[in-house]
Design a binder for these strands. Structure first.
Lengths: 66, 66
DNA sequence: TGTATATGATCCCGATCGGGTATAAAATAG
DNA sequence: CTATTTTATACCCGATCGGGATCATATACA
């Protein structure tokens, strides 16, 4: 599982959103949210950022250790 | 410009690699390296990680302020 | 001058993404 | 403890797009 998979799944739950609600809020498909939370590796960067931006975050360079 | 665009361009130069050499080392196309360093938004995550891993880094969640 | 880089235009293959649907699991109601 | 609803997972399909390869041109730089 990647880094944002966990981050997003937890954040979504703490704010009480369903996957479907998050999808429509972020302007992406439900399938994408599911792939994302499932840790799919080959997602598109802009789509991931589209979702992360709802939580004031974005994709960036990090070390292997979290 | 995104975060890894700058990071990768600088790293590549400090280790003395051309875009072409980096591309073949990372197993991606030259065009991808160029798009990457130019900050293209819609790249695929796995490919970006493929390149970042050469420098012991990966893609992760970060704040808007770097 | 030659080398590295940037940008644009194709073509082509394969994957992503979204929509729909069917199903499974979890939560809630009766 | 069941029945119903909600939420999550899995699969197929079709349109779209990424990315590799290649050629061409333009610019920056050593």
């Amino acid at each position: 599982m990647s880094n944002f998979s966990i981050f997003l799944k937890e954040r979504r739950k703490t704010v009480g959103l369903t996957q479907e609600e998050l999808a429509s809020k972020a302007g992406v498909g439900l399938r994408f949210i599911r792939d994302l939370e499932q840790g799919k590796k080959s997602l598109r960067l802009d789509k991931v950022n589209q979702v992360l931006s709802l939580f004031g975050k974005e994709v960036g360079v990090v070390d292997f250790n979290s």
